[in-house]
Design a protein around this nucleic acid. Structure first.
Length: 204
DNA sequence: TGCCAGGCCCTCTTTAGGGCCTT
Protein backbone atom coordinates (compact mmCIF):
# COMPACT_ATOMS: atom_id res chain seq x y z
CA UNK A 1 0.00 0.00 0.00
CA UNK A 2 1.30 3.39 -0.91
CA UNK A 3 2.38 5.53 2.01
CA UNK A 4 0.60 8.66 0.83
CA UNK A 5 -2.86 7.14 1.28
CA UNK A 6 -5.09 8.42 4.07
CA UNK A 7 -7.96 6.34 5.41
CA UNK A 8 -10.76 8.30 7.08
CA UNK A 9 -12.71 5.89 9.25
CA UNK A 10 -15.68 5.71 11.58
CA UNK A 11 -16.89 2.97 13.91
CA UNK A 12 -20.39 2.33 15.14
CA UNK A 13 -20.19 0.47 18.42
CA UNK A 14 -22.27 -1.03 21.22
CA UNK A 15 -21.17 1.76 23.59
CA UNK A 16 -18.39 4.11 24.54
CA UNK A 17 -15.74 1.91 26.04
CA UNK A 18 -14.04 -1.26 24.82
CA UNK A 19 -12.53 -1.50 28.31
CA UNK A 20 -16.08 -1.98 29.59
CA UNK A 21 -16.81 -4.72 27.06
CA UNK A 22 -18.17 -2.65 24.20
CA UNK A 23 -17.55 -3.91 20.67
CA UNK A 24 -17.64 -2.54 17.14
CA UNK A 25 -20.77 -3.26 15.10
CA UNK A 26 -19.91 -1.41 11.89
CA UNK A 27 -16.85 0.05 10.23
CA UNK A 28 -16.93 2.54 7.40
CA UNK A 29 -13.90 4.06 5.72
CA UNK A 30 -12.88 6.19 2.78
CA UNK A 31 -9.40 6.02 1.27
CA UNK A 32 -7.94 9.26 -0.05
CA UNK A 33 -4.96 9.73 -2.33
CA UNK A 34 -3.95 13.30 -2.99
CA UNK A 35 -7.38 14.45 -1.87
CA UNK A 36 -9.32 12.10 -4.12
CA UNK A 37 -11.46 9.17 -2.94
CA UNK A 38 -9.95 6.03 -4.43
CA UNK A 39 -11.60 3.29 -2.33
CA UNK A 40 -14.26 2.64 0.30
CA UNK A 41 -14.90 0.04 3.00
CA UNK A 42 -18.19 -0.65 4.77
CA UNK A 43 -19.16 -3.68 6.79
CA UNK A 44 -21.53 -4.56 9.61
CA UNK A 45 -20.09 -7.00 12.13
CA UNK A 46 -21.66 -9.25 14.71
CA UNK A 47 -20.34 -8.49 18.21
CA UNK A 48 -21.71 -11.73 19.64
CA UNK A 49 -24.35 -10.11 21.84
CA UNK A 50 -27.44 -7.96 21.40
CA UNK A 51 -27.18 -4.21 21.06
CA UNK A 52 -29.43 -2.19 23.37
CA UNK A 53 -32.34 -0.03 22.26
CA UNK A 54 -30.37 3.19 22.57
CA UNK A 55 -27.71 2.00 20.13
CA UNK A 56 -30.30 0.56 17.75
CA UNK A 57 -32.14 3.89 17.78
CA UNK A 58 -28.99 5.98 17.57
CA UNK A 59 -27.43 4.11 14.66
CA UNK A 60 -30.40 2.46 13.00
CA UNK A 61 -28.46 -0.81 13.23
CA UNK A 62 -30.74 -3.52 14.61
CA UNK A 63 -30.03 -6.92 16.07
CA UNK A 64 -31.76 -8.43 13.05
CA UNK A 65 -29.26 -6.64 10.79
CA UNK A 66 -26.36 -7.94 12.86
CA UNK A 67 -27.64 -11.50 13.18
CA UNK A 68 -26.32 -12.55 9.78
CA UNK A 69 -23.30 -10.23 9.74
CA UNK A 70 -19.81 -11.76 9.84
CA UNK A 71 -17.92 -11.70 13.12
CA UNK A 72 -15.82 -8.74 14.21
CA UNK A 73 -12.73 -10.91 13.79
CA UNK A 74 -13.57 -11.72 10.16
CA UNK A 75 -14.33 -8.10 9.26
CA UNK A 76 -11.33 -6.67 11.10
CA UNK A 77 -9.00 -9.07 9.27
CA UNK A 78 -10.18 -7.55 6.00
CA UNK A 79 -10.05 -4.03 7.41
CA UNK A 80 -6.50 -4.50 8.66
CA UNK A 81 -5.49 -5.20 5.06
CA UNK A 82 -7.45 -2.14 3.88
CA UNK A 83 -5.58 0.25 6.16
CA UNK A 84 -2.17 -1.39 5.87
CA UNK A 85 0.46 1.26 5.26
CA UNK A 86 -2.05 4.12 5.44
CA UNK A 87 -2.32 7.16 7.68
CA UNK A 88 -5.59 7.39 9.60
CA UNK A 89 -8.10 10.12 10.36
CA UNK A 90 -11.27 10.13 12.46
CA UNK A 91 -13.53 12.66 14.16
CA UNK A 92 -12.65 12.47 17.85
CA UNK A 93 -9.90 10.03 16.95
CA UNK A 94 -9.28 8.95 20.54
CA UNK A 95 -12.64 7.16 20.42
CA UNK A 96 -12.12 5.35 17.09
CA UNK A 97 -8.48 4.63 17.86
CA UNK A 98 -9.27 2.79 21.08
CA UNK A 99 -11.90 0.64 19.31
CA UNK A 100 -9.59 0.01 16.36
CA UNK A 101 -6.77 -1.00 18.69
CA UNK A 102 -9.08 -3.21 20.76
CA UNK A 103 -10.60 -5.00 17.77
CA UNK A 104 -7.23 -5.46 16.06
CA UNK A 105 -5.74 -6.79 19.32
CA UNK A 106 -8.33 -9.57 19.23
CA UNK A 107 -6.85 -10.77 15.93
CA UNK A 108 -3.30 -10.15 17.16
CA UNK A 109 -2.64 -7.19 14.88
CA UNK A 110 -0.98 -4.11 16.43
CA UNK A 111 -2.41 -0.66 15.65
CA UNK A 112 0.62 1.34 14.65
CA UNK A 113 -0.61 3.82 12.04
CA UNK A 114 -0.45 7.54 12.88
CA UNK A 115 -3.93 8.86 13.70
CA UNK A 116 -5.04 12.43 13.08
CA UNK A 117 -8.15 13.94 14.66
CA UNK A 118 -10.54 16.18 12.72
CA UNK A 119 -12.17 17.28 16.00
CA UNK A 120 -8.92 18.64 17.47
CA UNK A 121 -8.08 20.33 14.18
CA UNK A 122 -11.57 21.82 13.77
CA UNK A 123 -11.39 23.31 17.27
CA UNK A 124 -8.24 25.13 16.16
CA UNK A 125 -9.10 26.00 12.57
CA UNK A 126 -12.87 26.63 12.77
CA UNK A 127 -13.08 28.45 16.09
CA UNK A 128 -16.21 30.33 15.00
CA UNK A 129 -18.27 27.17 14.50
CA UNK A 130 -21.25 26.88 16.92
CA UNK A 131 -19.70 23.66 18.21
CA UNK A 132 -17.47 20.93 16.81
CA UNK A 133 -19.80 17.98 16.54
CA UNK A 134 -19.49 16.32 13.15
CA UNK A 135 -23.05 17.17 12.11
CA UNK A 136 -22.64 20.81 13.08
CA UNK A 137 -19.40 21.14 11.12
CA UNK A 138 -21.06 19.55 8.08
CA UNK A 139 -23.72 22.28 8.20
CA UNK A 140 -21.27 25.06 9.08
CA UNK A 141 -19.02 24.21 6.14
CA UNK A 142 -21.91 23.28 3.80
CA UNK A 143 -20.39 19.85 3.24
CA UNK A 144 -22.38 17.78 0.80
CA UNK A 145 -24.19 14.92 2.50
CA UNK A 146 -27.17 12.63 2.09
CA UNK A 147 -28.75 13.47 5.44
CA UNK A 148 -27.82 10.13 7.01
CA UNK A 149 -25.67 10.33 10.16
CA UNK A 150 -24.48 7.76 12.67
CA UNK A 151 -23.87 5.13 10.01
CA UNK A 152 -20.22 4.34 9.55
CA UNK A 153 -19.66 4.95 5.85
CA UNK A 154 -21.84 8.08 5.79
CA UNK A 155 -19.92 9.57 8.70
CA UNK A 156 -16.59 8.54 7.17
CA UNK A 157 -17.56 10.23 3.88
CA UNK A 158 -18.37 13.57 5.49
CA UNK A 159 -15.34 13.32 7.78
CA UNK A 160 -13.20 12.86 4.66
CA UNK A 161 -14.74 16.04 3.24
CA UNK A 162 -14.09 17.76 6.57
CA UNK A 163 -10.44 16.64 6.40
CA UNK A 164 -10.12 18.25 2.97
CA UNK A 165 -11.73 21.45 4.33
CA UNK A 166 -9.21 21.44 7.19
CA UNK A 167 -6.24 21.11 4.87
CA UNK A 168 -7.73 23.79 2.59
CA UNK A 169 -8.07 26.09 5.60
CA UNK A 170 -4.37 25.67 6.38
CA UNK A 171 -3.49 26.36 2.76
CA UNK A 172 -5.64 29.49 2.67
CA UNK A 173 -4.75 30.91 6.08
CA UNK A 174 -0.99 30.41 5.94
CA UNK A 175 -0.35 30.13 2.18
CA UNK A 176 0.78 26.58 2.82
CA UNK A 177 0.35 24.48 -0.31
CA UNK A 178 -0.67 20.86 0.26
CA UNK A 179 -0.12 20.65 4.04
CA UNK A 180 1.31 17.26 4.91
CA UNK A 181 -0.32 14.73 7.21
CA UNK A 182 2.63 15.20 9.56
CA UNK A 183 2.02 18.95 9.69
CA UNK A 184 -1.65 18.37 10.49
CA UNK A 185 -0.64 15.96 13.27
CA UNK A 186 1.59 18.62 14.80
CA UNK A 187 -1.03 21.33 14.34
CA UNK A 188 -3.68 19.38 16.24
CA UNK A 189 -1.42 19.43 19.31
CA UNK A 190 -0.66 23.14 19.29
CA UNK A 191 -2.33 25.38 21.88
CA UNK A 192 -4.80 27.68 20.09
CA UNK A 193 -2.94 30.81 21.09
CA UNK A 194 0.28 29.46 19.55
CA UNK A 195 -1.09 28.53 16.11
CA UNK A 196 0.30 31.62 14.39
CA UNK A 197 3.74 31.25 15.96
CA UNK A 198 3.82 27.53 15.14
CA UNK A 199 2.83 27.98 11.50
CA UNK A 200 5.19 30.89 11.01
CA UNK A 201 8.01 28.65 12.19
CA UNK A 202 6.84 25.80 9.96
CA UNK A 203 6.68 28.04 6.88
CA UNK A 204 10.03 29.75 7.51
C1' DT B 1 -17.94 -1.00 49.24
C1' DG B 2 -19.35 1.46 45.43
C1' DC B 3 -18.52 2.86 41.24
C1' DC B 4 -17.72 2.16 36.43
C1' DA B 5 -15.08 6.02 29.45
C1' DG B 6 -11.57 8.90 28.73
C1' DG B 7 -8.83 12.41 26.37
C1' DC B 8 -8.92 17.26 25.46
C1' DC B 9 -9.26 21.88 27.04
C1' DC B 10 -10.88 25.98 29.47
C1' DT B 11 -10.83 28.51 33.79
C1' DC B 12 -13.31 31.14 38.93
C1' DT B 13 -6.33 26.21 37.43
C1' DT B 14 -1.96 23.49 38.58
C1' DT B 15 -3.37 20.64 46.00
C1' DA B 16 -9.52 20.92 40.48
C1' DG B 17 -13.74 20.84 38.30
C1' DG B 18 -16.55 20.46 34.52
C1' DG B 19 -18.03 20.80 29.52
C1' DC B 20 -17.14 18.86 24.96
C1' DC B 21 -17.01 14.90 21.81
C1' DT B 22 -17.35 10.02 20.27
C1' DT B 23 -21.35 5.28 20.62
Amino acid sequence: MSQDAIVVLDFETTGLSPAQGDRAIEIGAVKLKQGVVVDRFQQLMNPGFAVNSFIAGYTGITNEMLRLAPSCETVMTDFAAFIDGCQLVAHNASFDQKFLAAELARIHVPQSQPFACSLLLARRLFQDAPNHQLGTLVSYLAIENDGVFHRALNDAEVTASLWLELTAAVTQRWACPAPSFELMLKLQRQPKHQLERFMKKQMA
